[in-house]
Design a protein around this nucleic acid. Structure first.
Lengths: 248, 248
DNA sequence: TCAAAAGTGTTCCTGCTACACCCATGG
DNA sequence: CCATGGGTGTAGCAGGAACACTTTTGA
């Protein structure tokens, strides 16, 4: 077979879908948009869109992210202007039946963002929202009347990736503003993992892990109680030793 | 914009590329095939091919694998007939310039296989071989005159995935025959990580990790020395505690 | 003065490392 | 007998878990 004979391969549409996660009010939340068209009209879905003809996959994801949220992600390969959001490729979904209309292969990306004021989807506040992932992924969750298409599966994979990745990397800081306290970082871990952590041991652990945090100089009392030191994310990306997630 | 107006998205070709890893003679090796056509004619490349119109991505990868090696992979989602090989999606590569002829998005998959007699690529033994990854990924390695296309990058990502994944999962057993000794498993870790491990502590660790290994009953002396117990892979997929890779 | 959150000290215990030592086979 | 790899025992040490205790603010 001649591999590049156009008749040798079928036409595919390639899209990017985004799992945009943040921590709001002590809960892990994902960005979802309301579908305006068939199929799944009126249902919530992950933001996303078509990859352009001259565009890299990561660039398409960053463009969609900016269009939906105004966020400028810096993916590691392209350390752009970014305001702190982290972008990475998640996985690719290509079941022939995942879109009833045509063959669509979707390259899902994961974005971790600090808490943002409010999503804007073309200025229409009613068509985009932050939703706690627990509401989007109910109990048995294999695509049970929740998100459109296979987006519940994609979201679950993204959440699982985030949960495991903050164990051995400093990515949890991507959920925090540029300057943050140890307590705020701890509440990120607690929200993402859904567990309670000992504040004393957590403090010792993160301040003792080389490269994780660097003091920013000031203090804040925005959480009440004794003023807490402010930190920035240190240069380390891989944590050694890793943060330990308590047993289930 | 109407998302499904055919003029709204450009045509993509979607392929799967395979990083097939095995351990031969104490070295981590990858399967490569020689290209018969332009571009990169005569150069070594990862095996792969087009995804068919009605085929899932994992199915396409499994089909290509069978065509190139005769292996039947069982991917976790489809626990097929498989003879032990492990298949998982690796990442997707879609740089607009990665193929000079047209826009090709490649969904790379990672396969871990036990040592196999010899590759067969259409019966032509001269066009497929196992090559030590150290030879395929020389020093500076950003695509420096080695593999075709961006396959050096893909291979490097696959090797890195394998190296990290055997830390916290039981995947190293996928490099072993159905029954194997602790020493054979240790030599897998040593080859993949490129380090020497203490045989005594390794033995205690793997036999003490619940679900990792189950005794198969017999013994063997195929390595010389005192007969060693034979084991099979246990049911556990995630190792707790993980295997610790020594510092660099 | 009290509640709340930040941070430190200390004790216990698990689990890894290093290495001494014994076991069972082939040559 | 000896070389080779398989397997066990044990001492020392690093680091996590649990928790008592002190510090510094706002109300």
């Amino acid at each position: 077979m001649s591999p590049y004979d156009p008749s040798a391969f079928p036409p595919f549409a390639v899209t990017v879908d985004l799992v945009v996660l943040t921590v709001r009010r002590h809960a892990l939340c994902a960005l979802v948009v309301r579908r305006g068209e068939q199929p799944f009209q009126g249902r919530w879905a992950l933001p996303g869109g078509f990859v352009r003809g001259d565009e890299d996959l990561a660039a398409a994801a960053a463009r969609e992210l900016a269009e939906e949220t105004g966020l400028c992600a810096h993916d590691p390969a392209d350390p752009g202007l970014g305001n702190g959001a982290h972008l990475e490729q998640l996985a690719t979904y290509g079941d022939p039946k995942r879109d009833p209309r045509m063959r669509v292969v979707s390259v899902a990306h994961l974005v971790l963002a600090p808490d943002l004021p409010a999503p804007r989807a073309g200025g229409d506040a009613n068509s985009a929202r932050w939703a706690p992932v627990d509401e989007l992924l109910p109990v048995g969750d294999p695509a049970s009347e929740g998100l459109a298409f296979d987006h519940a599966t994609i979201l679950a994979d993204g959440v699982e990736r985030a949960r495991s990745k903050i164990e051995y990397s400093s990515l949890a800081t991507a959920f925090c503003p540029p300057e943050f306290t140890v307590g705020e970082l701890r509440r990120v871990y607690e929200a993402v993992w859904g567990v309670a952590l000992d504040p004393r041991n957590f403090h010792r652990k993160v301040t003792g892990t080389p490269g994780f945090l660097v003091p920013a100089g000031g203090t804040t009392t925005r959480q009440g109680g004794r003023p807490a030191q402010l930190f920035r994310a240190g240069g380390a990306t891989l944590l050694n030793p890793p943060m330990l997630r308590p047993e289930v």
